[in-house]
Amino acid sequence: DIEITTNGEEDAKRVIKELQKRNLEYHIEVHGNQWVIKVR
């Protein structure tokens, strides 16, 4: 598993777009303004 910590929603959406392009499965956890994306 890979864990990507982003700085808020805009940053997270940019990362998610890339993950979707590669058809990767991911899970999002929001901790305040930090979005942690866990990639399987």
Results as ranks from 00 to 15, higher is better:
T6A: 14
Q20H: 06
G32A: 05
G32K: 04
L19M: 04
Q20Y: 04
V39T: 03
Q34A: 08
E9I: 13
E3I: 15
R14N: 08
Q20C: 03
E10H: 07
R22C: 06
I2A: 04
E9P: 12
K13R: 13
R40S: 12
R22L: 15
I4W: 08
H31Y: 10
K17L: 13
R14K: 13
K21R: 13
N33C: 04
T5L: 13
H31K: 12
L24V: 10
L19Y: 02
A12D: 00
L24K: 06
G32Q: 05
V39Y: 08
V30W: 05
Y26T: 02
N23V: 03
K21D: 13
V30S: 04
R22V: 06
K17I: 13
N23P: 02
V36G: 00
Y26D: 00
K21H: 09
Y26M: 03
K13F: 12
G8M: 06
Q20L: 11
H31I: 14
K13V: 09
K21G: 07
R40V: 15
N33D: 13
R14S: 07
V36H: 05
R14Y: 09
Q20I: 14
G8H: 09
W35Y: 08
K38I: 15
G8E: 06
A12G: 04
N7D: 12
W35S: 02
R22K: 12
R14H: 07
Q20F: 04
I37C: 02
V30H: 09
E3W: 15
E18I: 12
I4T: 02
H27W: 14
Q34F: 13
N33Y: 08
D1K: 08
I37E: 00
L24G: 02
I4Q: 01
I28Y: 05
N23C: 05
V30I: 14
R40L: 14
V36Y: 04
I16Q: 03
A12I: 04
L24Q: 05
D11Q: 13
Y26H: 03
T6G: 14
K38D: 01
E18A: 10
Q20D: 13
L24H: 03
D11K: 06
E25Q: 13
N7V: 10
Q34D: 05
R40C: 13
Q34M: 14
K38V: 14
K17V: 11
V15D: 00
K13C: 05
W35F: 07
I4P: 01
